[in-house]
């Protein structure tokens, strides 16, 4: 546990180079967070299908844990993006396609967790959540496309593209290192969250017995 946290802090402090101004450093958090959030929701999607198909309890535990961690990471994406946006764009928030899509992703998966939490029986909650996860994951590309059109067809060129030209290799290496570190952190959190969920379910089952 301390090992993973230590590794993560070390890697965050490690890349000392900043080419396009210091603020660019936020990218080392922001980009890995986005990728991990998408990874988490891909897991939710696949595990949801697997659960509906095979009814394997483990798939549901995986989907639930990945969704919760994904929501945490998406929230961090929004916060770090906002903090990055203020000095670079001059505003905390703009209704740009990527931002809007990420915000909707956040809402969809908060809905996913709420369905699960508020459904009367657990089996039903698991099925409903799986369906919401599948629909949400399928919807994300469509949402992104629609929002891109909305910004381009309606108000062309009112905002600057978020990412500049291709990222220089000097920035790529720390980015990869950070992505690797956060991936490890993500997997670590995922395993622990799954263990917690399994413990919770076993406790519930045992309580029903006694």
């Amino acid at each position: 546990m301390l090992l993973a946290v230590g590794l993560y802090v070390g890697l965050v402090l490690a890349p000392p180079d900043a080419v396009q101004g210091d603020v660019q450093r936020i990218m080392y958090l922001h980009l890995p967070f986005v990728l991990i959030a998408y990874l988490a929701f891909a897991i939710v999607f696949l595990a949801g299908i697997a659960y509906l198909w095979k009814r394997d309890e483990w798939a549901d535990v995986l989907a639930h844990s990945a969704a919760e961690i994904g929501v945490v990471f998406t929230g961090l994406v929004l916060v770090t993006g906002s903090i990055w946006g203020k000095p670079t764009w001059g505003v905390w928030w703009t209704w740009d396609a990527r931002l809007t899509t990420t915000l909707l992703l956040f809402f969809i998966f908060v809905g996913y967790l709420m369905v699960r939490a508020l459904t009367e029986e657990r089996g039903r909650g698991a099925r409903y959540a799986a369906i919401v996860g599948i629909i949400g994951a399928l919807d994300i590309p469509i949402i992104h496309m629609s929002v891109v059109w909305w910004r381009t067809l309606h108000q062309p060129s009112t905002f600057l593209r978020a990412q500049g030209p291709a990222i220089a290799p000097a920035l790529m290496i720390p980015l990869f290192v950070n992505f690797g570190a956060f991936l490890v952190l993500f997997l670590f959190l995922l395993v622990r969250r799954m263990r917690l969920e399994q413990a919770r379910r076993e406790a519930e089952a045992l309580e029903a017995l006694t």
Binding site: V5, V12, D22, I26, F33, I69, G75, L76
Partner: peptide, 23 residues
């Protein structure tokens, strides 16, 4: 710029550590 960086890294660290701690 370092203020923004500190804010971003700080929030991320607090959230992730907090999440881990609660878990």
């Amino acid at each position: 710029p370092w203020g923004y960086i500190a804010a971003a890294y700080g929030i991320a660290a607090v959230v992730l550590l907090g999440y881990h701690l609660v878990m």
